[in-house]
Design a protein around this nucleic acid. Structure first.
Lengths: 311, 311
DNA sequence: ACCAGGTATGCGAGTTGTGCATGCTACCCA
DNA sequence: TGGGTAGCATGCACAACTCGCATACCTGGT
């Protein structure tokens, strides 16, 4: 039993609508003979029975033809709908994008990128979620996330993902306004070896500080605070100092001072957009990468972000 | 934008299921190269974007491919379902048949045919309705009926329908048991010119009697009774005589006698199965014609039906 | 460095689809 | 009653497509 193409089905429907091979041929841009043969082929593919009664003036559906009609309509409609859907995915006038980001990215980078993306592609349904990097990678694997904004801080195995480098963010220390070093443009960490530290983890190895630990410096973590807004509070109260990445540097309360850390003490932290490996990124993912870059450029122009948004 | 065939869609689905062109080619009985080209063509027909990521070991769906999947499944399923449906119509393992019949046919002919049809083709949904011939023709026109069992008694315009001759039924007079002619094998109508007549219409022209009216005979209609069971009652009570067609002759009460009418007085009435003109009859209609003929043969073997079930 | 498993592609042959011209049938109208 | 006409079917030649074969190419594992 032969093959059926949308062409034959469309011809069938047009003939059924117009009641004539000849006029259907005209509206479809074929000759009458082509239509005649297409219908004949379709009749063959459908088991052999005639779909039309050939009358002296045109044709009319047989019982079988009438029965076929809804199926043919549905099949053609599905293929058309598929074309539209794929087109929407390609033209970014539809579809869905699920983005994850680590917490600090939520301060400025992600809101900025989301706003930009929404204004450019309002019909793409964009969802974001904040996760630890480790969780995000898992969700990329299980196809619950299309793109994840991650940093390589925690030493998670990023190498089995497609990485799109976004920016290298330098580090700052947050100092209370009255701290002796609060007016400096740059500090070395050894200068803060005797201060109390505020960190996201009791073991500094598992926090932002991990890259700073060396022979000459091991911070004394006195307060364990995860939220950046709370860290600010502790710092402002003079309870200690904290390391914070450039991405979070723009939303700082006026009684907290940020001072750059020397690059040799804490290397700039790379921020990537990660996507599943070996999978060609969808247009929506590509577009979001673009808006992420645009967001970083925009932020670099007006902020302390180091601006090394190379690529 | 090109054409899409069920073949390409089936190939697409099989590749998606197995994750490899090669293995899909094996299960479908094609070569790997054919599958590769079919997918390539499908990608073209769907707008150009890739549907699969080509990995070193096999392929995996892209976002677009994942989006296409449900549409492809639906389209293929619809075409398959259509094939099954049409096959059911052809093999009489499905579908529907709407039959109409004039009242007298409901006495024996239709029940017999319906029983036969149901036992042979139990999966065809058979509906019957009793109508005047005039109504039935209208319902054939409006496609509310597939086949109508009619007689040409009433002079309705049968000529614009496809007529399948079933039988010529001769006519009988129903006489009360004590009627002087009740033991005859045949009568002439003039012999009954002085009797009271029972008919379905006050004007004998519009009833079974219309063919009997001539120079020498005009019946005096005294009782107007439509239902055959009631006519029997009137006749049995000695209130008159009635003309009845052979099709109804088998269900007569014992105190009513039937006597054949001479053929010259009332010509045998032709009974047809009528179908819409110019329309090739569906297999179900053909089959019902067959069972009608079988029913008539069966009845002729054991009844007064004249048996001229010619063709 | 080679092999294994997979996809892409050039090539030739067979098949299918298309258009043109023509044949055929039934209706319409004079 | 006989041409005219509208419409489908079909023979034919040609173009386009599809398929299989052989082979090139890529990548990961040994």
């Amino acid at each position: 039993m032969g093959d059926v193409s949308t062409g034959s089905l469309a011809a069938f429907l047009e003939v059924a609508r117009l009641g004539s091979f000849t006029s259907a041929a005209q509206t479809l841009g074929y000759t009458q003979s082509a239509i005649s043969r297409q219908i004949s082929a379709l009749e063959g593919a459908m088991g052999g029975g005639p779909l039309f009664d050939r009358l002296p003036r045109g044709v009319r559906l047989t019982e079988a033809g009438r029965a076929l009609m809804p199926y043919a309509e549905a099949a053609v409609e599905r293929v058309d709908a598929a074309r539209h859907e794929l087109n929407a995915l390609r033209e970014l006038t539809g579809g869905r994008l699920r983005v994850g980001a680590f917490p600090t990215a939520g301060a400025e980078l992600l809101p900025c990128a989301v706003t930009l993306f929404r204004s450019r592609y309002p019909e793409v349904k964009l969802r974001t979620e904040e996760n630890l990097t480790r969780v995000q990678l898992a969700r990329l694997d299980t196809d619950e996330l299309d793109l994840a904004v991650v940093s390589d801080t925690a030493g998670d195995p990023l190498d089995s993902y497609e990485l799109h480098h976004l920016v290298d963010e330098s580090m700052y220390v947050a100092l209370p306004d009255e701290h002796p070093l609060a007016r400096r443009r740059q500090v070395r960490l050894v200068e803060l070896a005797d201060d109390d530290w505020i960190s996201g983890s009791p073991q500094p190895e598992r926090s932002l500080l991990h890259a700073a630990i060396g022979e000459t410096f091991r911070p004394r973590v006195v307060h364990v605070v995860a939220e950046w807004i709370a860290k600010q509070g502790y710092v402002a109260a003079g309870l200690g100092v904290a390391l914070i990445p450039a991405l979070a540097a723009d939303c700082v309360r006026p009684d907290v001072r940020l001072v750059a850390v020397h690059e040799d003490d804490v290397p700039a932290r790379a921020v990537y957009a990660a996507t599943p490996q070996g999978r060609s990124p969808s247009p929506a993912v590509e577009a979001f990468l673009g808006t992420l870059r645009a967001a970083i450029d925009g932020m670099a122009a007006q902020s302390r972000l180091s601006g090394k948004s190379a690529k």
